[in-house]
Amino acid sequence: MARLNVWRGAVLGLAALYFLVPLAASVVFTVDVPGRGVTFDAYRQIVSTDGFGSSLLLSLELAAATIALVLLLTVPAVVALRLGAPRLRAVVEVVCSLPLVVPPIAFVAGIATVLKWGPDHLSRTPLFQTFVAVQNPDFPVVLVLAYVVMALPFVYRALDAGLGAIDVRTLVEAARSCGAGWTQALLRAVLPNLRGALLNAAFLTLALVLGEFTVAQLLGFRPFAVWIVAVGGEQAQLSVAVSVLSLLVTWALLLALAGAGGRTRTASSRG
């Protein structure tokens, strides 16, 4: 047991060095200015830099829309699989895992081809305005649709694991026996027991949207990740400072998620 604890500590220490040393080097790069010493001007300039607020707000809006849409699509689907079609779980799992197999560059090439094909063939139909609307730079719906597809593997795994920890059939049958409809049974009996899984799925989707670059860049939009790269070509220290700040915010969200999940499990065990 003592030897196991030593090896465990060694592995954890190496993992900590692997993550913390590059982070520390990035922080030093942002605050150590040659000829001026230590300064935090790079962090103070973040808020005032052109495009920071708009790009971050756009990414947060895209993340909120993506989380809402992907949960709206997947939660009823996975619950229905558990209740009425358990043999189709393997098929749905394979379908939801396909975005991990298709490279993002191929995925965005297909989207761009469809967007170019639409106006050429549908210019005289009402659908032409739809192709224009989904590419609105103020809120590109096409990015939301792309992110929903990319988030499917993570959301499905999180929800499937959450459903595996509860007896969905018993909960739904109990709610139905009390006079609740299918929608009420889902909202009042199933979803409260999936709070941790929903939080996991939402956090993974948020992290994906905030960090996604390829699809947004190739389609010509400028959310937060694309803005960071653009700024990096002009102001290296500012770009690294934004990256460090976004990483710290992501860690804070992860800690908040872990705390919320722990409180959920405690409340469930007390109940």
Rank of each mutant, 00 (worst) to 15 (best):
V75Y: 03
Y147N: 09
F131G: 13
P99T: 02
V114A: 15
V142L: 08
L98W: 11
K116S: 12
L98S: 04
V108C: 01
V149A: 12
G118Q: 13
V172F: 01
R124Y: 11
Y156Q: 15
F128Q: 13
E173G: 03
L127V: 11
P140Q: 07
V78L: 14
R89M: 13
F131Q: 08
A112F: 03
I111P: 09
Q135G: 04
C178N: 01
S177I: 01
P153E: 03
P119F: 02
Y147V: 03
V102M: 07
F139K: 07
A151H: 06
L159Q: 07
F107H: 00
F154N: 01
D138S: 13
L163H: 05
V144P: 00
V168L: 02
V91M: 14
A106P: 00
F139S: 03
L127D: 01
V79T: 06
R176M: 00
F139N: 08
V92D: 05
V108W: 02
P126W: 02
P86F: 02
L145A: 14
I166H: 03
A85P: 12
P99E: 03
P140T: 09
A175N: 11
V134C: 02
G164W: 07
P153N: 04
A90E: 12
P153S: 06
L81E: 09
V101L: 13
I166K: 04
F128K: 08
Q129K: 08
G84Q: 06
L100Q: 09
L83N: 03
F128S: 14
F128A: 15
A175G: 15
L98K: 10
V148H: 07
V78H: 03
P140M: 11
R82A: 12
L159E: 08
T113N: 11
L163V: 12
